[in-house]
Structures are given as C-alpha cells and as structure tokens.
Lab assay of single mutants.
Amino acid sequence: AEEIWQQSVIGDYLARFKNDRVKALKAMEMTWNNMEKKEKLMWIKKAAED
C-alpha cells in the first residue's frame, strides 16, 4: 500500500524538492508515518484490488 501511495505522490514530492530524490523520499516516509489509519486504509484497499 505504501508503494502505491508513493508512486502516486512521488512527482509532487520531487517537484517540491527540486528533484532531490533523497529529501523527497525522506519527506514521503515521514508523511506516510504521520498519516491517519483511515487515510492509509484507502491505499491498502487500492493495493488489494491490484
């Protein structure tokens, strides 16, 4: 689920960090860890469908 979420937001994060992939990935990891369980559930369901 986290991978699907990352694939959907990586472009936004890379743009925000001027294509600094290391910073973008760290920010994504922090965002994922801070997400509410119900927000993650949507992505977990999406992962299950694929």
Rank of each mutant, 00 (worst) to 15 (best):
K38A: 13
Q6R: 14
K23Y: 04
L25F: 12
W5T: 00
L41Y: 09
T31C: 06
M42V: 12
A47L: 07
L14C: 08
G11W: 11
R21A: 09
M42C: 14
L25K: 08
D20S: 05
K40I: 04
T31Q: 07
A27V: 06
Y13S: 00
L41I: 07
V9H: 05
D20K: 02
M30L: 13
E49G: 12
D50K: 14
N19Q: 11
K38I: 10
G11H: 14
W43K: 02
V9Y: 04
I10Y: 10
Q6Y: 08
W32A: 00
I4P: 02
K40A: 02
A1S: 04
Y13N: 01
W32V: 01
G11E: 12
N19T: 03
E49S: 09
Y13T: 01
K46S: 05
I44M: 09
E2D: 05
A48H: 09
A27R: 03
W5M: 00
M28H: 00
M42G: 09
K26W: 08
R16K: 10
N19P: 04
A24T: 04
M35Y: 02
M42N: 10
N33G: 07
K46V: 06
E2L: 14
A24R: 01
D50V: 15
L41H: 06
E39Y: 05
E2P: 15
M30Y: 13
A1T: 03
K45L: 13
W43N: 02
W32N: 00
E36R: 05
I4R: 08
K40P: 00
K40V: 03
A15L: 14
W43F: 04
K40R: 06
W5A: 00
A15F: 11
E2H: 12
K26L: 12
N33H: 10
W5F: 07
E3K: 14
K18D: 14
K18E: 13
Q7L: 14
A1H: 03
Q7R: 14
N19L: 06
M30D: 14
D20T: 01
R21M: 12
N33S: 10
T31I: 09
W32H: 01
A48K: 11
E39M: 05
V9I: 05
M35I: 01
N34H: 08
E39C: 07
A48M: 15
R16F: 11
S8A: 13
M30K: 09
M30G: 06
M35P: 00
N33L: 12
W43A: 03
L25S: 05
N19A: 06
M35S: 01
E36F: 03
K45S: 10
D50E: 14
Q7Y: 07
N34T: 11
I4T: 07
K23M: 14
E36W: 03
K18L: 10
A48F: 13
Q7E: 09
K23F: 05
N33T: 11
E3P: 05
K38P: 06
N19I: 02
L41W: 07
R16W: 07
M28I: 04
M42H: 14
Q7S: 10
A48S: 11
E2Y: 15
L14Y: 03
M35R: 01
S8Y: 14
Y13P: 00
M30T: 11
K18V: 06
W32G: 00
G11K: 13
M42P: 08
A47M: 05
A24N: 00
R21V: 10
N33I: 11
L14T: 03
R21G: 06
G11Y: 11
A15N: 06
A48P: 03
M42F: 15
K40S: 01
